[in-house]
Nucleic acid binder design. Structure first.
Lengths: 199, 199
DNA sequence: CGTCTATTTGAATGTACTCAAAAGCGGTGG
DNA sequence: CCACCGCTTTTGAGTACATTCAAATAGACG
């Protein structure tokens, strides 16, 4: 059950030692709270109705987090890639069932820490507590920014922004998912791309 | 400059003493960090480009927080009423200029604490630190929920939800602002209301 | 090569938008 | 108290844009 350094992304150690400022022994203790999990493409890390029990570091792979409307339509809120954290923070904190689906787009390798272990680590290592709070803040700012974008930009503007900010996404994420993220139908995205490429 | 108990909303004291669990002396200390401010209707608490220096408790009144697009269109992200906190947490934390406008809809009376004083209070009183972290979390959950709503619901569904959840809003907020909050034009909201009332 | 899925294209539809004007409402001053 | 002014809300007409339904093409994988 113990994780070796070779099994984790170099960025993981780098972040917690250099940025968060953990000592070697604190880092070892923190790491001991994690277990490794593999989730194949198309499988779910979380489904609406379930309680989220883990906070997970995405070591390898990509995921999409989405909600489902009454008619079964899926609406992608965000993607995640290597070195992102995935999970439903609200469900994790409150213990209430999630409204979110989190699905692996590519095969995923995760480092998971349970709610209980995370609480323990936060209690023992104040820097982890600070790190977690800072993470929630930043996540919040990103979400607020996304809300502002969805409200104030046209589909074309959202598309151009995405391609400018994250061109790599198009190498890994099917267009239908990108369409959902941009809040348009796949057909509309296809036409939009055609229009732009003709210029 | 000192605030008297009679000058603050009973809920303010109630929250910090009963819910946050401050002692009387901690509460007195916390309160001493605040100053009172009045912002008349239509005036701004914050404009895009400015750095947010205060976290403010809305004692009396209502505000709207919005972004502006390239063409000058306003997009309301949320309203605030009595006993809500207003400000741009991101700008407050990072010290970077805000992208948000916060405007008084009704005459407002605020209890403001500066960034510096808030930091001091958080450092002196751990419960304030906890309270502030919990506040950011909850704000985040609300924002995420709103993002999901904007993406997955029709204008009609959003309107019906709003009227069910916050019917009082319609007593205090002009319809044009509610339209912006729902992400539709005022004319469309008017037609939507007519359609629904004919059933 | 064949099957399954993703993407593109086409045609018709619908819904919210824009522009424009009228009606309603509130406040002010004569 | 009423007349006027400014602002909000409603109504009307026409338009634009993304959507829907349907089908064709392209790509991926066994």
């Amino acid at each position: 059950m113990h994780l070796y350094r070779s099994e984790i992304s170099p960025l993981f150690a780098e972040t917690f030692i250099n940025k968060v400022g953990l000592t070697e022994s604190e880092f070892e203790s923190f790491l001991s709270g994690f277990r490794r999990e593999f989730v194949p493409r198309k499988y779910f890390l979380l489904k609406a109705g379930q309680v989220c029990n883990d906070h997970s570091y995405l070591n390898v792979g990509s995921t999409r987090t989405y909600t489902m409307d009454d008619k079964g339509g899926e609406h992608i809120l965000f993607f995640a890639f290597e070195d992102w954290w995935v999970g439903d923070l609200e469900s994790l904190e409150t213990g209430l069932p999630s409204n979110l689906y989190i699905q692996a787009i590519e095969d995923c390798e995760l480092l998971c820490i349970s709610k209980m272990d995370l609480i323990k680590q936060k209690a023992c290592i104040p820097k982890i507590q600070e790190w977690h709070n800072a993470k929630i803040s930043k996540t919040h700012y990103r979400t607020l920014n996304r809300l502002a974008e969805v409200k104030s930009q046209t589909p074309e503007e959202r598309y151009v922004n995405l391609i400018n900010k994250h061109p790599q996404i198009f190498q890994r994420i099917p267009l239908q998912y990108i369409a959902s993220y941009l809040d348009i139908e796949p057909q509309s995205l296809s036409r939009l791309r055609k229009r732009l490429s003709e210029k």
